[in-house]
Amino acid sequence: MAESIKPELVKEFVYHAHGDFEKVKELLEQEPGLLHASWDWGGGDWETALGAAAHMGRRDIATYLLDRGARIDIFAAAMLGELAIVKAILEAHPDMINAKGPHTIPLIDHAKAGGDSALAVVKYLESLK
Rank of each mutant, 00 (worst) to 15 (best):
A52V: 04
I74V: 10
L90F: 05
K129I: 04
I74M: 05
H18Y: 15
H93P: 00
K87G: 05
G114I: 07
A17H: 02
L28E: 06
E31Q: 14
V24F: 05
L80Y: 09
A99E: 12
L107Y: 12
V24N: 03
D95M: 05
S4M: 11
P106C: 12
L90E: 06
I105P: 02
E8K: 07
A37W: 03
L66Q: 11
D60K: 14
E12G: 03
L27Q: 04
R71F: 00
K6Q: 15
E12W: 06
A54M: 03
I72P: 01
A17I: 07
G44A: 11
G69C: 01
S127M: 05
I89Q: 13
I105M: 10
R59M: 07
E82G: 00
K6T: 13
L107P: 11
E12A: 15
L27D: 03
G19L: 12
K87F: 09
G44H: 05
A99H: 04
L34F: 04
A84T: 13
V121G: 13
Y124A: 10
L35F: 00
K6G: 08
G43T: 10
L80Q: 06
I85V: 15
A70L: 01
A70K: 00
D116E: 15
K123V: 06
E8N: 08
K129M: 11
K112P: 04
A17G: 07
K129L: 08
D73K: 02
F21E: 13
A54G: 05
F21W: 08
L28A: 07
H55W: 15
Q30C: 03
D95N: 06
T63C: 07
A111P: 07
E91I: 02
A78S: 15
S4R: 09
T63M: 15
K23D: 05
A62C: 13
A111W: 10
P106I: 10
L27T: 03
P102R: 02
M56A: 15
R58K: 15
V121H: 14
E82S: 05
F21S: 08
V86N: 14
S117P: 04
